[in-house]
Each structure stands twice: as structure tokens, then as C-alpha cells.
Simulated scan of single mutants.
Amino acid sequence: MQYGDKTTFSGSLKIQKRVINALLMREIITRYGRNNIGFLWLFMEPLLFTLMISVMWKFIKADQYSTLNIIAFLITGYPIAMMWRNASRRTIGAISGNLSLLYHRNIRVLDTIFARVLLEISGATIAQIIIMTFFIIIGWIDVPHDIFYMLLAWLLMALFATGLGFIICSIAFYVDAFGKIWGTLSFIMLPLSGAFFFVHSLPSYVQKYALWIPMISGTEMFRHGYFGDSVTTYENISFLIICDLVMLLIGLIMVKNFSKGIEPR
């Protein structure tokens, strides 16, 4: 079998891998260029932003208002929220920015959207690993209680970001105005994602409504993995998995439907 043979499943996977790799490299070069630190900005942007906020909270002595390590609280909530927010925002320009590439028979609309989502998830993941490792080394935070549980939470939220990205891109394709206001809407949703609070700290009559927000389950799960039983969390893993699968299915159907009317130019 030749490398580009599409008659077998493995051949198709090889082609798909090459397509995604090519789109990722194109996105990196287009967005960050070839000069200076280039692709390093992929994770330097979220890394520096999180580092700046963490240092600010550290030196205003926010720890005095809580027995919980406020830096650990911040970096186990804010970066994971920025991942799904940035991934969904970047999908909006995926079609117009790669329209000419659709002349290639192996490139589909879905590939261009997925490449952007994957790029944002990868950048957020690398930034999260670096910032946590750095703070552990300098003694600002402790070693996580259960790394595997944190990885599982991050993976589930990455799936959430992917499904959300597909849906947002599809809606923005049909309603151009939506693409312009999603940045504001997603910013408003940020405080509702659980990035800045524990569900346990909310009034009991609010908690049952908060748990219907899937991002909160992901954040609570991630923090449970870090803090362990020293904090009380209310993550609903089954609910989050169902939300991820439903959003992925809806997003794929929506992308498939609007892709039929797109022609390269």
C-alpha cells in the first residue's frame, strides 16, 4: 500500500494526519510568523496572562482572606475557562481564513475548524503544565493530589471546547452578527464557569441550578484532582460526558449541513 492510498482505513488516517499537521503549521505561521519566537507565542500568550494575574494576587496578599492557596485556586480555574473561550472564538474565522485551501480534495471545512480548536487546546495545555510546574518548583503551590483525575477533567473540557467551537462556528456562519458579539457573550459566561468560586460556597438554593452548567462540573473536577478531599466539590462527571457527546454530535451535524454550500474561491 502506498502512503497516500485511501483504500484502507490506515491510509485514510495517514492522509488525515498530514492534513491536520499542515493546517496547524499554516495557522501557526499565519498567526505568529516565522521571526522572533514564532510558534512559542502559541502558549506564551496564555502563560504570561495567567502568570501576571497570579503574581498580582500573590503580592496583594489575597491569601489572607482565605485558608486556601489562592494561587492554586486561580490556576485551577481560570486557564481551563480560557481554553474553551479562546477555542470557540478562534473557530469563527476558520472558514474565511482558509477558504482557498478547500480546492485541495483532501481538505474539508471540518478540518479547518478542528485545526484551530486543536491549536488553542494545545497552547492552553502547554501553558497550564508550565505554570503549574514553575509554581511548584518555587514553592508557591503544592504538588497536585491526583494528577490523573486532573488530566481526565482537562480532557473532558477539551472535548467540551471542541463541541462548542463547532457549534459557535456554525451559528456564526448563518448569523454574521453573532460572530461579532460572541467574544462579549463568552466573557460574560466566564464568571458562570466556576473559575472564581466553588459550588460549595454558593447558597444551597443556587447550587442545584449551578450544577446544570457543564463548565462548572469540569472546573470542580479539576480542582478536586488538585486539592483532594481538603475541599468539597460537586462535579457530575456523567452529566459532563453526556454534554460533551451531545455538543460534539450537534456540532458535527451543523458543520456538515453548512459545509455543503461552501465553495472555494
Rank of each mutant, 00 (worst) to 15 (best):
Y3F: 15
T8C: 04
F9G: 10
S10L: 14
S12V: 10
L13A: 13
K17C: 11
I20M: 14
I20S: 12
M25N: 14
I28C: 02
G33K: 07
M52E: 04
S54K: 06
V55W: 06
M56Q: 01
A62W: 09
Y65S: 12
I70T: 12
A72C: 09
A81L: 00
R89E: 13
T91A: 13
I92A: 10
G97M: 07
L99D: 03
L101W: 10
H104D: 11
V109L: 11
I113R: 03
F114P: 00
F114W: 13
A115F: 11
L118W: 10
L118E: 08
I121A: 07
G123Q: 06
G123V: 06
A124F: 01
A124G: 02
A127V: 04
I131P: 10
I136F: 08
I136Y: 06
I137V: 15
W140T: 08
I141D: 01
I141Y: 04
D146L: 03
I147L: 08
L152E: 08
A153S: 03
L156E: 07
L156K: 00
L156Y: 07
L156T: 07
M157C: 02
A158G: 07
A158D: 02
G163I: 12
I168R: 01
F173S: 08
D176P: 00
I181Y: 08
I181V: 15
W182K: 00
G183F: 04
T184Q: 12
S186D: 08
S186I: 15
P191M: 04
F197M: 04
L202R: 00
L202W: 11
K208M: 09
S217V: 00
M221P: 01
M221E: 02
H224Y: 09
Y226S: 00
G228P: 06
D229N: 14
T232D: 05
T232C: 03
Y234M: 06
N236G: 02
N236P: 03
I237M: 06
S238I: 12
I242V: 14
C243S: 14
L245Y: 02
L248E: 04
L248Y: 05
I250A: 13
V255K: 07
N257A: 11
S259Y: 09
